[in-house]
């Protein structure tokens, strides 16, 4: 677990200093993300498209980490919940003419509702049941999207109105970036509330959490629902960004991409996934375009990276940075600490 490397005695002063440093780092990174499209090579449309994909994957990975990293349940149907939100929003726009700006949130509600049902069915069991059932439900959803050709046009793909009239990638980048920031803020606030404490307690030891008066199932279901709702929201963006929607959005490969980013970023940190998503996704997109004659190579790369991190660096990037932070703290005692 990522949390095992916490520095031994945490004084109040050190918490203040390191949380201030985290805040400053976060703001700097946020500014960097905002400025990125103006820094070469990201000024071109190709690279800006990579940026949109990266920010989307980042947002998805953050939502994924909210369950995977805190309550220790891997949502193997994550892509299907993304796809459900995408199809909901797209169909509302195509059939009823509802604007995507509202449709995306309705998609989030539908995905969240299915997450609620899945959670209520499986989360009272051992975590592995939830993971596998989410996978089954994902496959069933993908089957529906394929077979209900009258509604979804199946593998032919559904033409979806885009969010904006423009074909420029830049505005889309800022929309998804804003969504990413919002997700990070909302989910961090939940994690800092009493909910977050319960999530961590349950993720580490269900029995102990139950003994201290927490009803694990309720918290697990809340967590799972929230994560699925965010997945649905990003699905809406996906649909209205690409403008075409096929059942492949729900494919397992997509879940694997997201979970790899989340775990390499560091489970149970939220921001680790957001940071690592950018270099990783852009690198993989470059690899995919430059080595088009070797299809699937980027997936092998993802798989190897995931396994190496899981075995040798279970804390991921966040764990490394935390350790570096602790090392900095021990090297340079701050003024505040001296007072304490």
């Amino acid at each position: 677990m990522a949390t095992q490397t916490a520095p031994a005695p945490i004084t109040r002063a050190r918490v203040i200093s390191s949380s201030r440093r985290t805040l400053i780092t976060a703001i700097l990174l946020g500014l960097l993300a905002i400025a990125l499209p103006f820094i070469p090579p990201f000024t071109g449309q190709d690279y800006q498209r990579y940026l949109v994909v990266a920010a989307l994957v980042a947002a998805e990975a953050v939502a994924f980490d909210f369950t995977g990293g805190y309550i220790d349940i891997v949502n193997f149907g994550f892509a299907a919940f993304v796809g459900l939100g995408a199809y909901t929003s797209a169909l509302l726009a195509v059939d009823l003419g509802i604007t995507p700006w509202i449709g995306m949130f309705l998609g989030a509600i539908v995905s969240g509702f299915l997450g609620l049902l899945t959670g209520m069915l499986t989360l009272r069991l051992r975590g592995i049941y939830a993971a596998v059932m989410a996978w089954f439900i994902g496959l069933a959803l993908m089957g529906l999207a394929r077979n209900l050709v009258d509604v979804t046009r199946g593998m032919l793909g559904l033409n979806v109105p885009r969010l904006l009239e423009t074909s420029d990638n830049l505005p889309y980048y800022y929309i998804i970036l804003a969504m990413l920031f919002l997700t990070l803020i909302v989910l961090s606030l939940i994690i800092r509330s009493r909910f977050g404490l319960a999530f961590r307690a349950i993720g580490q030891n269900v029995q102990a959490a139950r003994a201290s008066g927490i009803n694990p199932t309720r918290f697990l279901v809340i967590n799972f629902t929230v994560s699925c709702a965010f997945a649905g929201l990003f699905g809406g963006f996906y649909a209205h960004y690409y403008g075409i929607l096929t059942p492949d959005v729900m494919a397992m490969v997509h879940t694997i991409e997201v979970l790899t980013v989340a775990y390499i970023g560091g489970r149970g940190s939220l921001w680790g996934a957001a940071i690592i998503a950018f270099p990783l996704t852009i690198g993989v997109e470059l690899m995919r375009t430059s080595l088009a004659n070797l299809p699937g190579l980027h997936l092998i790369f993802y798989g190897v990276l995931l396994m190496l991190v899981m075995i040798y660096q279970p804390g991921g990037l966040a764990g490394l940075l935390r350790r570096a932070g602790a090392w900095l703290d021990s090297r340079k005692p701050t003024q505040v600490k001296a007072e304490a």
Binding site: G68, I73, L294, L299
Partner: peptide, 26 residues
């Protein structure tokens, strides 16, 4: 580490699956 063994090994096997499938494809 044997901490959260079941979930971790599930992820590892997912990695194995992706690697084997795509290696076969290549």
């Amino acid at each position: 580490s044997r901490e959260s063994w079941v979930m971790n090994t599930f992820l590892l096997t997912a990695g194995v699956s992706v690697i084997m499938q795509n290696t076969d494809m290549l």
